[in-house]
Amino acid sequence: MNMSVASSSVKKGETLIDTAMTLNAMQPDILVVRHHSAGAVALLAQKVACSVVNAGDGAHEHPTQALLDALTIRRHKGRIATLIVAICGDVLHSRVARSNILLLNALGAEVRVVAPSTLLPSGIEEMGVRVFRRMDEGLKGADVVMMLRLQRERMEGAFVPSVREYFRYFGLDAAKLAYARPDALVMHPGPMNRGVEIASEIADGPMSVIEEQVEMGVAVRMAVIEYLVGVSAEGNP
């Protein structure tokens, strides 16, 4: 069953807890929840009896994206450990970045972030990453270049001055990508802003594995669901 906020009782003022109670009463096997507020999915999970998959909560986490990214990397490189992964762009607002920082570090990669300081969260230096403010430095020797989406409302003078300035200094084009290893992978969690964080020729180029990420997304989420259904069938959470 699919339920979206726009057409549900959430719009009519129902609180998240009430929604959780209602959903719980339907006795589902699994809830897959995406929410705009960080921590909302965890809050909901406390109130229901079934398994809950976090499909993205605010700027907090997006665990299955990190799993599918790791799977995509491993398929190409045969390992994760010791690889240099540069996560570039709007780290401040990105749940994808946070999940990848956690997972890739756990798997032994060297994780870097590359962004203007206005798009980096406070304390980023202590999150287990190396921080760069210039693409040429941050991409040097990278095995994986992971681009993040910059939302439109953040482009025009709020966090960065303009699209053309952002693309000039932080958009992934051939010149900047040349700093990475020649066999580097180019990744993007989608949806892409072509000409903002990534040039079309790169997104569609030979180093891009962006479509494969989508494919791995299906596999990873199938696996997650299968695992959780198996767990709940055994009654052994």
């Binding site: 025009e156 003078g157 709020a158 960065v160 001055p161 303009s162 053309r164 300035e165 000039r168 200094y169």
Partner: peptide, 15 residues
Amino acid sequence: LTKGLKGKEMTEIGL
């Protein structure tokens, strides 16, 4: 510092 000196959006400091 801001476009049109309007105090809303930063200018293209890099460019």
